[in-house]
Design a protein around this nucleic acid. Sequence first.
DNA 1: CCTTGACCTTCTAGTCACTAGAACCTTTAT
DNA 2: ATAAAGGTTCTAGTGACTAGAAGGTCAAGG
Lengths: 132, 132
Amino acid sequence: MQIREVEQSAGLPAKTIRYYEEIGLVRPDRRDNGYRDYSTEDVHRLRFLQRARGLGFSIEDCRALLSLYGETERESADVRAIAEAHLEEIDRKIRELKSMRQTLAHLVQACHGDARPDCPILDDLAGIGGGT
Amino acid sequence: MQIREVEQSAGLPAKTIRYYEEIGLVRPDRRDNGYRDYSTEDVHRLRFLQRARGLGFSIEDCRALLSLYGETERESADVRAIAEAHLEEIDRKIRELKSMRQTLAHLVQACHGDARPDCPILDDLAGIGGGT
DNA sequence: CCTTGACCTTCTAGTCACTAGAACCTTTAT
DNA sequence: ATAAAGGTTCTAGTGACTAGAAGGTCAAGG
């Protein structure tokens, strides 16, 4: 299978697929003309990567997950540990964004947003008034 | 004021302060020995940057905000527009993270996480079962 | 046979916002 | 004289791609 077809079935751009090969996540065969030739196994791995990345796992997490996926001797506890750590990281990010959101929404609401120059948003950033 | 002191009062590492100079966000004087010499104005700008970055504004947003901060002729509507756009971006990210969180939490809960190899997390990533 | 167009290849460099580290200079204190 | 603590510049690395250039390959049409 050529790369253009894999783009469709894995849901990843060709550039990304080549990049994943460069960092050792897939190893497609090569034809005589130098073209990459993907097996269904390769396509499975790429689809796996597409989903895992879609859940926000880092490339290194993906590497570990793919490796566990390939082991018949794996322990589900290892998979779960990776997922739980990632879940905590997601929660941390959500908390951080919500905190930003709160402050920012408050400031936006306080700003009349017209032709006049006075602005609570700038005041806050400059450290005037209620700032941290 | 030397850079080490500015680190404290602006709450930014020296490397970052130099980087901000490199990309034209501050322009401290230089002493005869080549050392940077920060005015209180410079420190204000850096503290402004520290807060704006803390609210997640991009460097380019910060540049625009700093510029508006310096204009007496500014219109608060321009500031507010930047803040509102950023707020929407934050909301978008929160939605994305929550969606990941939902899927992931569900999978983690379904995984028994012991010494056995069968694992709903890997099954989902591999596209077995309920996956999209 | 030649060309066109669609596909493929590799390589370099850019993104964002820093951060690490090397190699070197200056100042102050002992 | 020297050591420590500050300063300087420069290069390169981070994560996960993405854009673009320069060129090789293949099938179809004239």
